[in-house]
């Protein structure tokens, strides 16, 4: 699934355009950055309801190219700026983490 399809499935706004050619196959769901930071974590998308700068830093370190914020939460401007400077795709959706996960699971993504 590419970013455009992802944003349609999740009815999500794209707040930062990273590498648009990214193909999302595997998703990781967590609000705990230390959990995401486990070595060997391979995913193309992080789904989280945490919206601070640490989320961007975390996906930068583990090289997850896209992040989707849930529960209608919006990151602040600085966080979006940081994401843009790191070429990380940022989406935001009104759906809850559970709903986002359900929709992506139904669409055939892996976890």
């Amino acid at each position: 699934m590419n970013i455009k399809e992802l944003s349609q499935v999740l009815n999500a706004k794209i707040l930062s355009n990273g590498h648009l050619s990214v193909e999302i196959k595997t998703t990781y769901v967590s609000d705990l950055m230390s959990d995401v930071l486990t070595f060997g974590r391979e995913a193309e998308l992080l789904v989280t309801s945490l919206t601070n700068r640490q989320t961007i830093r975390t996906v930068e370190m583990v090289e997850i190219p896209a992040i989707c914020y849930t529960n209608g939460k919006q990151p602040d401007e600085k966080t979006i700026e940081l994401a843009k400077s790191k070429k990380i795709t940022v989406l935001a959706t009104e759906f809850s983490t559970f709903q986002v996960t359900g929709k992506l699971f139904a669409a055939g993504l892996q976890g």
């Binding site: 705990l32 486990t38 070595f39 640490q54």
Partner: peptide, 16 residues
């Protein structure tokens, strides 16, 4: 609440 402090940090560092 920043997503840290769950008691995994040092273990994470060790695992790396």
């Amino acid at each position: 609440e920043l997503g840290f402090g769950a008691g995994m940090g040092l273990q994470n560092i060790k695992n790396c």
